[in-house]
Design a binder for these strands. Structure first.
Lengths: 251, 251
DNA sequence: CTACATTTGATCAAAAATAATCATTATTAA
DNA sequence: TTAATAATGATTATTTTTGATCAAATGTAG
């Protein structure tokens, strides 16, 4: 039995039982305790279970932790961007929050606010903020994109259109002077577009690696955003040109 | 049992009882008082409970209890009801799933189905089913009830009204011949009512303890449901009378 | 305030689990 | 096929956890 198979099986039986000991897993899968420990360590490092002394436990809100793959890409620069973005929010605000890891990074820095209303289509954001007393959440309804852990589709867009908020915090897959805002997926573009349309101030959060890059779905121009929050890498003529389009750059 | 497991269990029983002595915890979890003290100290340092002389007290603003509490109340009878309800679902169905622990219990038994579409307002259900390949999920949008981990409110009702499905699986807080279906909360009643309205077949899931009891919000008659799925405790004249109202009882 | 009982925190030894090491087996590449 | 590589299981030293003991601290009753 390969590691991938064992990994799957371990997660499956762990889904059924809350907690398992190394020996139990060893017996159930007929593999040695040493291998079980190695597997558990790997799975734990991937964030798929909680390692304990003697075994492993199911993770509570694992299902909503979307970024299994991207989690590694959760760099300091994203945290910085998230912090800066969160600083734009004040008590009593109502904001849109798009899905994506950069916008998600805002969450940690929003928790001290009061009377904040967050409208989002992202389950990880919901999971992160649901137990914060000062924050109320409205969830966009519609079809669930399991991969992205977010709601999308026509119904979601219609739903977003029933709201009007002061600030929207959105992400992109690409932004350039030539093609404006671009995304890898039409569904995602559709949602972000709806956020842009119904917010007075639009904050685009992206690390500098995406600036100057294009994805294949064009969904907005630079004029449709008001602030670009990014890392210190963006400098020189490109920054100037973006600012000339009427975008305020925050770094 | 590892520290992580004990920690969870201590918080769970502490949520049920307001305060506990070291000896009570020691007996309940079959661990020595010394270990209990160590655990309580750790938990206290994490700010998850208030240490007292001789034991510990529950903290008011403890955030994540609601979730686990329901899971604790996951009795065998609920599991049986969930299983029986899940057996009514076939490949290709589109179903409504209400929030509540009894309906939640269906999830474990739905995982082998294919091309199933689940429309729900309950985050625990979404979390449980999101990684099941054969199941697609539509999330009802609207205001999030943090306590119940579900979406409710007018927007949610409007959203539900845009769907029409073959089967709805709903829960109640009370059901009786005199007052029909009742709930503890208007918001919850509103949602369940919307589910009833837009489904061809309505399955009401409840353990027998709620049959014959009333909650204060009346939201439907016995005629508005088609099936009652419950445990074996429901017998005799009451069962007869419910069946005379046109409800098929499944046990 | 004192005496008594209970609880606690510290220390320690026993038990359990782990990480590290190494030989063996299985898999892959050449 | 053979060599090289990776994965597995067994062994052992180390670490962690646990429960017990006991002096000190805290709370309670008289």
């Amino acid at each position: 039995m390969s590691f991938q198979e064992r990994k799957k099986k371990i997660l499956m039986i762990l889904d059924e039982f809350e907690a398992l000991s190394v020996m139990e897993i060893s017996r159930k899968l007929s593999i040695s305790p040493a291998t079980v420990r190695r597997d558990l360590q790997d799975l734990s490092e991937e964030g798929l279970l909680q390692r304990t002394h003697g075994g492993a436990m199911k993770l509570d809100n694992l299902p909503f932790v979307a970024f299994h793959k991207k989690q590694t890409a959760n760099t300091e620069s994203k945290q910085e961007i998230g912090k800066l973005a969160a600083a734009q929010v004040v008590d009593g605000d109502t904001i849109f929050m798009d899905c994506g890891s950069t916008v998600f990074a805002m969450c940690a820095h929003l928790k001290k606010l009061n009377k904040l209303k967050v409208i989002t289509n992202s389950l990880p954001i919901v999971a992160e903020l649901i137990d914060t007393p000062g924050i109320g959440i409205n969830l966009i309804g519609g079809e669930l994109d399991k991969e992205r852990r977010a709601v999308h589709g026509d119904m979601a867009v219609q739903h977003i259109d029933t709201y009007h908020v002061s600030k929207a915090f959105v992400g992109v897959d690409g932004i350039s002077l030539q093609n404006g805002l671009t995304a890898h997926s039409e569904k995602e573009a559709q949602i972000t577009k709806a956020f842009l349309k119904n917010a007075e101030q639009v904050y685009l959060l992206t690390d500098s690696s995406k600036i100057g890059k294009d994805a294949y779905v064009k969904f907005g121009t630079l004029k449709s955003i008001h602030f670009l929050i990014t890392d210190a890498q963006l400098t020189g003529p490109l920054k100037k040109k973006i600012e000339q389009e009427g975008v305020r750059v925050l770094q």
